[in-house]
């Protein structure tokens, strides 16, 4: 399938790096995802917005199968993740994920946090892993905290370490699940700055977030979800200024207040 990155005239058509088709998921009687179709082009920054309970986080968690979807297809770089024979651990290395609650390992130092997967999964030596880990920490501005334990860091710093931890594995796509929701307002900026740098470096990103100003300024495309469906998607100007759908309009008006 082809997909247009820039809308309107002169649209560039490239094959998506992540493509979700007909994804469904229920928790007991609750239908959380009702057949989601969704694609992300290389280097695209897609923002997923919507009211709580709309299935945004579940969609994200299905993309690396932390949550198992009931049916549908998830293609990452041409590999079907829903295939039972798929080597999930190998695929997950190529999908970085950042969580609302950071989820750093409290018993390891900052450097230990970012190097664990490189050493256990990629089999890198401690020295090589440390080198890559320090470079990643430097990228998020925290190389000086390498020896600290997570509990000694602010929330913003912890989240930047979590981003570095994902970056170390050189992922094709980064998934952000409400990365700033657990942060004090004055710490949000530092995390968004790192995400902005990643975007400029060409990282493909899918972001579930309520940071609408950041969405408006940095996103290539906004996906609006409600009740397990994608209601509308388009460039930020369209979604925020001239939404086609009445429900999108209501949601945008609500969060703008």
């Amino acid at each position: 399938m082809q997909l247009s990155v820039a809308q309107g005239a002169g649209a560039v058509r490239v094959s998506p790096i992540l493509q979700v088709r007909g994804l469904t998921k229920r928790f007991g009687p609750l239908e959380v995802l009702k057949g989601i179709d969704f694609a992300v082009a290389p280097q695209e920054l897609v923002f997923v917005i919507g009211p709580s309970g709309s299935g945004k986080s579940t969609l994200l968690r299905c993309c690396n199968r932390l949550e198992d979807a009931d049916s549908g297809s998830i293609l990452l770089d041409g590999v079907e993740l829903m295939d039972p024979k798929c080597d999930l651990n190998a695929m997950r290395r190529r999908i970085g994920m950042v969580f609302q609650s950071f989820n750093l390992y409290p018993h390891l130092t900052v450097l230990g946090n970012v190097t664990l997967a490189m050493r256990k999964v990629l089999g890198k030596s401690r020295r090589e892993a440390d080198e890559i880990g320090l470079a990643a920490l430097d990228r998020v501005g925290l190389a000086d905290k390498a020896a600290a334990y997570p509990a000694a860091l602010s929330g913003g710093q912890q989240q930047r370490v979590a981003i570095a931890r994902a970056l170390c594995l050189n992922p094709k796509v980064m998934l952000f699940d409400e990365p700033t929701s657990a942060l004090d307002p004055e710490l949000v900026g530092s995390v968004l700055a790192v995400m902005r740098d990643l975007r400029e470096a060409g990282m493909t990103m899918v972001v579930v977030s309520h940071e609408m100003r950041f969405a408006r300024e940095a996103a290539d495309r906004i996906v609006f979800m409600e009740a397990g469906c994608i209601v509308e998607e388009g460039p930020p100007e369209q979604i925020f200024s001239a939404p086609a759908n009445a429900r999108t309009r209501a949601f945008v008006a609500e969060i703008a207040r």
């Binding site: 690396n64 651990n89 999908i95 969580f99 989820n103 390992y105």
Partner: peptide
């Protein structure tokens, strides 16, 4: 916390590796 499993598994650690290392 369950987030510890999520974080480790999302970086490609297997179940046993996550159990032992995290």
């Amino acid at each position: 916390r369950k987030g510890q499993w999520d974080a480790a598994r999302s970086t490609g650690l297997g179940f046993g590796q996550t159990l032992v290392s995290v």
